[in-house]
Amino acid sequence: MNIPLLYIEDDQEIGSFVCQHLKDQGYDVRWQKSGEGAVEAAAGCKLVILDVMLPGLDGFTVGQRLKKSAPDTPILMLSARTSIDDKLQGLQFADDYLTKPFHPDELTARVEVLLRRSGSRSAEPLVVKHLLVHEEQNRVENRDTGEEITLTGKQFHIFSYMLRHMGQILTKEQIYEAVWGEAFIEGDKTLMVHIRYLREKIERNPAAPEVIETVRGIGYRVRQ
């Protein structure tokens, strides 16, 4: 079944193009040109894509109403306003902020990330190289052998944080602070040790890792 999305955009040209693109990606897009009745229209939608400059109610107001009525539905702001003030105002309630002009592939990537984060996509296991990851069940499977890989809590936490930021390079400070929830102290080897053990479990050849890539001088990355 296609995932239903609500798209609010007043510009005819951008709207029809984005609508078509998202439909091509397999989403069920409901496009409306103003913020009026957005709350009702959002019922049943898994995600809302919202323009800021709208006739009548502006995007910020519509966004706040939507968040109030359905706090779990992620909102992606799509705006030509790039000032930091606008972004900060938007991110008070929105889950992501994308500025125009954007690449359509970036839009779909961000939509995917938001859906995965909100759990709307979690039913499907994630395929990463030779691994099959069932995030909601905290389970990792080796597709080659069909064996289940047992990870410790911290290892799974680190891995799933990387999966949620698929394709992004994460510095060791970012990973440490996200997983341990405290400030990274320079020279701390804890994270490196955890990643070494994690690689021993999930990599085909831990000496030449494919899943968790080391980006020299910067950090780590997981790519699909």
Binding site: D11, I14, A80, T99, P101, H103
Partner: peptide
Amino acid sequence: KQLISSLSHDLRTPLTVMSGHLY
């Protein structure tokens, strides 16, 4: 700020359309 926001918006909207068509 308002002016810059609107200017930014007005300049970017056609760019978005152009990049959409390009895509």
